[in-house]
């Protein structure tokens, strides 16, 4: 089975968010970058498990500049066979999906896996766009994935329950929590990653459809109002009269 996993780079989950350049850019000073957790923990690890069980290969693809190489090496250390980096700044999801589609269109991958969203822009866009560009079926937010007889069985959480879906390969699937367990790369993986192929490609020519013009921070909370633990009727009164929440 030929698998492609889309890997993106995001600020660490504990990053304190601040902006520069007139609030048009993330201030990257002191920011630690990591592999997007959904891409690493779920999409990549499940791809590796499927390869280990059924044979095949796992390739990763990333749209980004040379500053993405460390996170790509991490994906290789966890176990991907080879990596592709499209050497361009990801401008918007359409631009990113177009680059990935352009790479994948003639490579006959059986399955393309992504994260459900990046934890910085929280888009949930690239997967659906990629599926439409490649004219493939798409299942979003899979929390379980199995492959047998050329078909994928995917479980996703729906409001108040879950549903089990079936789809023919090739297809595109985005991964949510539950699809796999995080893997910590071992020393051997880290050594091997240094010599695995990381192929850098020139981007295809395409214009983005959206652009971010400004960031703002949320207004800070007025401050917590403390209620005496002995007087819960006071909390109920505040929630009813002041907050109008009950």
């Amino acid at each position: 089975m030929k698998l492609l996993v889309c890997i993106s780079k995001v600020p660490d989950t504990t990053t304190k968010i601040a902006f520069t350049d007139g609030d048009t850019k993330l201030d990257e000073k002191d920011v630690q970058f990591i592999v997007n957790p959904y891409d690493e923990w779920y999409a990549l690890v499940r791809a590796l498990e499927l390869k280990e069980a059924q044979g095949g290969s796992v390739t990763t693809i990333t749209v980004g500049g040379p500053d993405h190489d460390p996170i790509i090496r991490k994906a290789l250390a966890i176990g991907a066979d080879d990596a592709v980096r499209v050497d361009a700044k990801a401008q918007d999801a359409y631009y990113t999906a177009f680059q990935i589609a352009d790479y994948a269109k003639d490579k006959s991958f059986d399955l393309i896996l992504l994260g459900k969203e990046t934890i910085d822009y929280n888009g949930s866009q690239v997967g659906g766009m990629l599926a439409e560009m490649l004219d493939l079926p798409f299942v979003s937010l899979g929390s379980k994935l199995d492959i047998a007889d050329g078909k994928a069985t995917v479980e996703t959480d729906i409001s108040g329950g879950s549903e089990v879906l079936e789809v023919q390969l090739p297809c595109v699937i985005s991964a949510a929590k539950g699809m796999a367990e995080q893997r910590i790369p071992n020393m051997r993986g880290i050594m091997a990653a240094r010599t695995k192929p990381l192929n850098v490609q020139a981007p295809a020519d395409v214009t983005p459809l959206t652009t971010i013009t400004k960031y703002t921070l949320p207004p800070s909370k007025a401050g917590v109002k403390l209620v005496d633990p002995e007087h819960m009727e006071e909390l109920v009164r505040l929630l009813h009269e002041e907050a109008k929440a009950i």
């Binding site: 359409y94 929280n122 888009g123 997967g127 766009m129 959206t210």
Partner: peptide, 24 residues
């Protein structure tokens, strides 16, 4: 809506119509 179905449909629609998309 930015729910399970909307998250799958809106990106497809964006490509079909070549229309810029903002989610959420």
């Amino acid at each position: 809506s930015h729910d399970l179905v909307g998250k799958a449909v809106a990106p497809r629609l964006s490509v079909r119509l070549k229309a810029g998309l903002v989610t959420g």
